[in-house]
Amino acid sequence: MHDAVSQARFEQEIAAIPESTRNLRGWKIHGTTYPVFDVEFCAPESDDRPGLRLRMDFSGWNSSPPSIVLLRPSGERITQLLPPKNGGATGVFNQGPHPNAHSPFICMRGSREYHIHPSHTVDLWDNIKGTPEFNLGGIVTQIWRAWQKDRP
């Protein structure tokens, strides 16, 4: 896809997310300069686990899904995930190693690291791209819901 088209789609989908939705969910936006969407899921003050920050690279959006790097709220890259908070892991946050990409990684449909993993190359991005659950806001929502359970 032409870069200008990708950028336009990226900016349109970010603009569609209302401030009220971001506030309700505790999403703090650190950056929206194409191709990077940098968003933090803020932890409640009473919680003993830190928030999670995602640096999502939307290059080629939406011919390709975003490549997602996991960060601590400070911006430090996560090298070791915390064990799932309630024991029952969603399986979304994967320590790796990933044979073709960085670790840890998001192991879920809609993440580039998932679709290029040898175990999932038959699960094609082309079959789901453009649907509401796999637009920019949909992917972030899905990861946020998994984070609420696992708190890695």
């Binding site: 969910r25 399986g91 979304v92 994967n94 879920m108 809609g110 999932h120 509401p132 949909g138």
Partner: peptide, 15 residues
Amino acid sequence: VVLDYGPDHSGGGNA
């Protein structure tokens, strides 16, 4: 009431 509506997370791949 404020209703938060969106997709649930997909199953993790457990790659």
